[in-house]
Write a protein that binds this DNA or RNA. Structure first.
Lengths: 182, 182
DNA sequence: AACTATACGGAGACACTCTCCGCTTTGCAA
DNA sequence: TTGCAAAGCGGAGAGTGTCTCCGTATAGTT
């Protein structure tokens, strides 16, 4: 990749990240990203064929954070319920960090053709690790995909309704108790 | 309202219901509704100022069904868990009956200005009745709004990913167990 | 039958995603 | 250094969507 292209690409991602974070995915137009990045729309679309691929690039750094959160929760010297709740809270918080991200990512959970497919894999394996780590404390039949979908759904609602963390906590407690062996 | 206006309005709602049901909210344009209803777009927008108000009119008959479902679940001669699960299943099924409805309705849960505000009230009071009916079988602090949001979130995911009923059932069992007193 | 309030309908304003293609720049090779 | 092909740039505009404006037509009353 030519140096000017590299520079433009990096600047676009930085600018887009700031815009998406402050205004939400839907409220930011590609023209707006192009203008703020001081490139033409053609340049923008050369680097990112669709708006979603741009979003994917913006969210690139998440994978590392996800795995770190699993480790942190499992290392917690606390009952399984607290470990689980810590992870779910962190997981939901990451999903709602960008307005509009939770619904979009969660919706593409079963779709290998989605631009978010790689991120979904990361989430699934993180939940797999969490489930394995907690072992028999959880109900026997729980699947990573189920956790991804339930928490993703709750996070999407919280995101679109802009719920406070406190409200979120109450719902995650219900989900956590449902996931634990009874 | 003039007779021709009444006729047009009714026809628009019928046509729109069929279109939304078969193709989903997002995949149907207002032009398409107007054309299929054999009216101009101006006429369509006179009756329904926004696409969402049209959707609201299309979903008008739901309120009755919701209350009937609560009664049916409470009348069930079965353990509380089964009653709860029956209601949650029915509730989620109604939300996913129209593609795209679950996310839209659930997102407007706290917003009194939404065109779906009346429907949200219906759902909330239905869940209130269910919670009261099940009494101490449920965890003490559960709120109707929490149930609406959690089940709405799960339904929205199931809707967007077109999950089979079986997959849905597994997730609702987790939610139900989380709602029950432990 | 005349008249007026009401309703109709479609052209088009505006916003958005994404494409096409002529022009410019970069980086390599002579 | 200079020339040149490949790579990149940028913006006009195509296509599609929601929604508005306003001249025309019609229902219902007198």
């Amino acid at each position: 990749m030519r140096a000017d292209a590299r520079r433009n690409r990096d600047r676009i991602v930085d600018v887009a990240r700031a815009l998406f974070r402050s205004k939400g995915f839907d409220a930011v137009s590609m023209d707006e990203v192009a203008k703020a990045s001081e490139v033409g729309t053609g340049t923008l679309y050369r680097h990112f064929p669709t708006k979603e691929t741009l979003y994917d690039a913006v969210l690139e750094a998440w994978a590392d954070k996800v795995n770190a959160a699993v480790d942190a929760a499992l290392d917690l010297n606390a009952p399984a319920r607290d470990q689980l709740l810590a992870w779910l809270t962190e997981y939901a918080a990451m999903l709602t960090a960008h307005k509009g991200a939770a619904a979009r990512i969660t919706a593409s959970l079963g779709d290998p053709g989605s631009p978010f497919a790689a991120k979904c894999e990361t989430y699934l394996s993180a939940n797999r690790r969490m489930i394995d780590g907690l072992g028999p404390a959880l109900r026997a039949d729980v699947e990573p995909m189920q956790v991804c979908r339930i928490v993703g759904g709750v996070a999407a609602v919280a995101d679109s309704s802009e719920l406070p963390a406190e409200t979120m906590k109450g719902m995650l407690e219900i989900v956590a108790d449902g996931l634990l062996a009874s």
